[in-house]
Design a protein around this nucleic acid. Structure first.
Lengths: 189, 189
DNA sequence: TTTTGGTTACACAGACCTGTGTAATTAGGC
DNA sequence: GCCTAATTACACAGGTCTGTGTAACCAAAA
């Protein structure tokens, strides 16, 4: 039924390893040598698949840019589930904040390409919230969606420095207040 | 009346320059040579004042750690004014996110010293909100204070990638809802 | 078998980094 | 004038980084 485990292409192996190292230790902190050594390939092979480290960085971020899969749960539940999933990710010891925000923070105002991807990602998340809110018939879905992404990114930043998964719960409680204030039913208070 | 412009000590000049460069371009992106050259001093002089770059980084962050000055305005106003001040900072072209979050993102899980300072800073901000909320007699000041810092850090992260000062206004509106929900009078809706 | 394409080992250029060593120079306090 | 302390110029060690050049190798396809 399931297709046989697709033999990972070399490119994918490189990307997966770059992802792990870049995300956990920082993009500037990891050299291409380190990535190649981790896989056990030569640096030459890596450069045969990516013309430069910058290209690898861009591919790393693009690979992180996955759309949330559609759900058939009620929109309000979907929204709140976001924060539960956040809490689970915070609890994992390999959580290190938002890769897009981190990349922008690290690579600075220099790197236009990185910033562009980060903006697209953030906007996609905001739009996802907005669409769910529209399904709920919320009046100013745009504004509320923005407020919800603030809670998401705020809890991520806080957890990054404090390592406290409770930040996700705090964000969820705040989100409930905002939703209720917009007329959304989020269960008994 | 005003004291004569205190002749900036060498140490302060170094710190001020390190601050500008570290903050705007990133800590890893700036070498000590660059800092010395920017001031027009020799690298040797810099190392006479700071034993290592790590020490300079720590001093940079500690210098950024300034307590908000006490105000005699009503607590609710003080809280909301936080977001106005945030909006002004976002509008400045030299805003580049929270230096503490950026440092943690950049220097990774490696640097304990940096993380420690960042945690202390974030906690001090939370406590400041909590104290204002207690003055207002809010029931669960701890929880609400946490939610407010989420909005602050969320808007900072969003502005970092999107360069959109409106994030501060969105955070302020959300804060108003949360405050009103806690029984605080924040003016007519 | 021969060809082809990806891979490896390895050296290397050129740049940048942190940190040190040293001797000459400057400037202020006495 | 003299002493002291900071500063300077400058070289350099030792490390890291990105990216390239090259010749050998291996496996599978033709």
């Amino acid at each position: 039924m399931a297709p046989p485990p697709a033999p990972q292409t070399m490119k994918e192996r490189i990307l997966a390893t770059a992802d792990k190292l870049f995300y956990l230790q920082g993009i500037r902190a990891i050299g291409v040598d380190t990535i190649a050594a981790e896989i056990g390939i030569s640096k030459r092979t890596l450069y045969n698949h990516f013309p430069s480290k910058d290209a690898l960085i861009a591919a790393y971020l693009e690979r992180r840019f996955v759309a949330p899969r559609p759900s058939d749960k009620p929109p309000a539940e979907q929204i709140l589930a976001t924060f539960d999933s956040l809490e689970r990710r915070f609890a994992a010891k390999d959580f290190r904040g938002c890769p897009f925000v981190n990349a922008v923070a690290e690579l600075g105002p220099t790197d236009r390409a990185v910033k562009k991807i980060a903006i697209a990602f953030k906007e996609s998340r905001r739009v996802w919230f907005r669409d769910r809110l529209n399904e709920l018939g919320v009046a100013d879905a745009e504004a509320l969606a923005t407020q919800l992404v603030l809670l998401v990114d705020g809890s991520i930043a806080q957890d990054l420095v404090r390592d406290d998964p409770a930040m996700a719960r705090a964000a969820k409680e705040a989100a409930k207040v905002l939703l209720r204030n917009a007329g959304v039913d989020v269960g008994v208070r």
